[in-house]
Every structure is written in C-alpha cells, then in structure tokens.
Design a protein around this nucleic acid. Structure first.
Lengths: 195, 195
DNA sequence: CCCATCGCCTTTACGTAGTAAGGTCCGATC
DNA sequence: GATCGGACCTTACTACGTAAAGGCGATGGG
C-alpha cells in the first residue's frame, strides 16, 4: 500500500541531488544518500547516468550555470532602446548572482573543468547582448568575460564570507546586495571605455 | 644506504601537496599518496596537521590565495605618485592571476568556506591601496571586492576554458593574457566613477 | 650504565565512498 | 505462454580518511 513511487528520471535525479547539495552541502551528496532520497538503491542511478557521479555533477552545474542573458526580442519592429543594455545587464547580473547564491554548494564545481558548455552558452549570450548594443566584436568578447568573471567571482567571495560568519557579528556586517550592485555598476561603467 | 630522508615539516607537507595538486589534480591528492611522496606512512602526516585533510587544504589555499597588494612604501619621505595606483593594481592583478593559474587545482577550494582569513588579508590590502589612492572608505571597500572578484572569477573562466580545450583548436583561440588585461582595465576604469 | 620519557613514525582496523558485474522482476510483444 | 528488454537490486571490490595503539630511537636523570 505504499505509494508506487514515480519512475526514475535523469531530471528527477538531478533535481533531488541539487536539493541535497542545497540542504546539506556538496560533501554530503553521495550516491547512496541520493538513492535513499529517491527511494531506490544507489546502483539504480547508473542506469540513467551511465557516467555515474561525474555525469551527476555535470548535470548540477548545467542546471545552475546556464542562464543566458537573452536580450528581449523587441516587439514588432520597434528597435530596442539603445541605452537599455546597461539596465538589462544589471538585472541579468542580479538574477545570475541570486541563482549562484541559492546553490552556493555547486560553486566549487564551476571552478573545475567540468561541463565546459554550460558557461559557454551564458558567455555567448552576454557577448551577443553587447554586440547588439553596438560594441565591436573584440570589445563584446572582452566585456562578456569581464562581466561573467566579476559576477561569478563576487558571488564566490560572498558565499565564503557569509558561510564563515559567526551569527554574533564579529566584524562590521557588509550589505552584500548593495556591494554586488555597486561593483557591477563599476564594471558596466568601465565597459564604456572600450573601443 | 638510502638517503636519511629529511624530517617532516608542516611546510614541506604543504609544498609537496601543492606539487601533487599541480601535477595530477586535486582529485588525486590523498593522504596515502601524499605520504608516499614524502616517503612516510600516511598517518605520520597527522602529527604535523592534527586536523588532517581539512588542515592540509586550508594550508594549500593560504599558500595560494594570500598575495597582498602591498603598496610599495615610498622611499624616505617621497610621496607615492598619486596616479600610480592603477599601474600598481594592474601589475598586482597580473601576478595574482598568474599564481591562481599556476595552481588552478586549488581554485575549487577558494569557493568553499575554508580558511576565511587567507582572502580577507588580500581584500584588506586592496582596500588599503584604494584608500591611499584617495577613495572614500565605502568606495575602497566596494572597489576591493570588485577587483578581487573579477580577478578570481576571470581566472576561473580561463582555467575551465584552457583545461577543456582539445589541442587541435576547435574554436578560435583566445588570447587570455590580453583578455584578462583588457578586462582588468575595464574594472579599473570603472572605479573612477565611484564617489 | 640503565631505564623512563617523549616525540616521531608505523601498524592495524573501521566506516564510508564509488562503482563493476551479474542477477531479478515485470510489462510488452508476438 | 514464451521471449525479450529495460529498470532496478545484490554483492563485492578497491580506495579513501582517520581513530587507536604500538614501536623505536634520542635524551636526560639516577
């Protein structure tokens, strides 16, 4: 009379794994624990992810890191307002940072050589936004890496700082939301100096 | 008649560990392998690093991440040239990036909550440089995190991209040295917009 | 000279990890 | 109903981190 347990899926496995990482940290994500959470023996996972844990971790970072900065297609023939790219990148940056911090446990995986495509997609979308904003190709490529590097790096600094903080406020507290936004503005302002 | 093996030291252990990580990757750094490299049983390491692998990894990132951007003390009473801070930060950034890429294997550790002090020192030194360059405290704090975030994040992007590259040049190659420098210039130029 | 002590290292052993190899069960197809 | 293939389970192996306790040579006091 136990509920018949919906079948295993690649997506369901990765979602559950992400849930474990968010709740207990990357170090506690093991195949056996993941199996338990899915009400399945650990070895069952290998039928859906033949490359085992490697593939699982690849799936995690793809799930977290792929958030393209799609320029909203302008409605019927109206041109996108030329000055909007900064506002657009500001809001994209905020969303990307929020996602990275929501899943801070996978941040270390972003530094490993795993899954090179997940970030490539995001980089390409940033480059495209800058190109459409009028930057030359070389400047757009530089700008894309500069922005993405800043967002990821700053998120990593935040994750470290907030994780290591004792709750009784040992040093002066930092308004990380504001600091991230201010730094992003610095980067976006600096882009104007590119040719 | 075997050479009498110089005694174990905390520093020698960490140096050897770093050598293993650089040569074979973080995943192959194990206590037993480290013991072999030191010609010692694995458990001997615990006498010098009582907290075991945690302490070892902490030592690794302290060794890599602590490179303060010390402003060169001006020689006898000469004031530092006011405009030099950008050049100084450019060269510091290049050195920091080079070190991160030399030890790309420890980059994932920088993202974990380990050893909060190693980066704090570097951040403080950046803040100090900016303060001495005339920035207000708040702007210096923002600028320090912006610079450090960019440098770390960009180095991570580079490490990923170069590690995943097939040697036969699948996409157009990127001049990473130039791209990093250009992005750092973007950030430094953007700092001028801070109050 | 002997023996107690201490610092450094080794031995042994336990629990947990990832996963290879093969087995089991069940629904679909002919 | 026999066959078959996919989804899941069982067992077992190797490697890891490390707790616990043992050995062992140098040192210093009697």
């Amino acid at each position: 009379m136990t509920s018949p347990r919906e079948p295993l899926t690649r997506d369901r496995i990765i979602d559950t794994a992400l849930h474990i990482v968010d709740g207990q940290g990357l170090g506690r994500l093991t195949m056996r624990r993941l199996g338990d959470a899915l009400q399945v023996e650990a070895m069952a996972i290998y039928h859906h992810l033949p490359r085992g844990k490697e593939e699982l971790l690849d799936g995690l970072i793809a799930h977290v890191a792929a958030l393209p900065a799609a320029w909203p297609r302008p409605a019927n023939g109206t041109r996108p307002a030329a000055g909007d790219w900064r506002a657009h990148l500001r809001s994209w940056g905020g969303a990307y940072r929020a996602r990275l911090l929501d899943h801070a446990g996978v941040l270390p995986l972003l530094m490993t050589r795993r899954n090179p495509t997940a970030l490539a997609e995001t980089t390409a979308s940033l480059r495209e936004v800058l190109r459409m904003a009028g930057f030359l190709d070389a400047a757009a490529a530089t700008g894309a890496h500069t922005i993405l590097g800043y967002v990821i790096g700053h998120a990593a600094l935040e994750a470290r700082a907030t994780a290591a903080r004792r709750p009784d406020d040992p040093e002066e507290a930092v308004d990380w939301d504001h600091r991230f936004a201010a730094g992003l503005d610095v980067v976006l302002a600096g882009l104007l100096t590119l040719p």
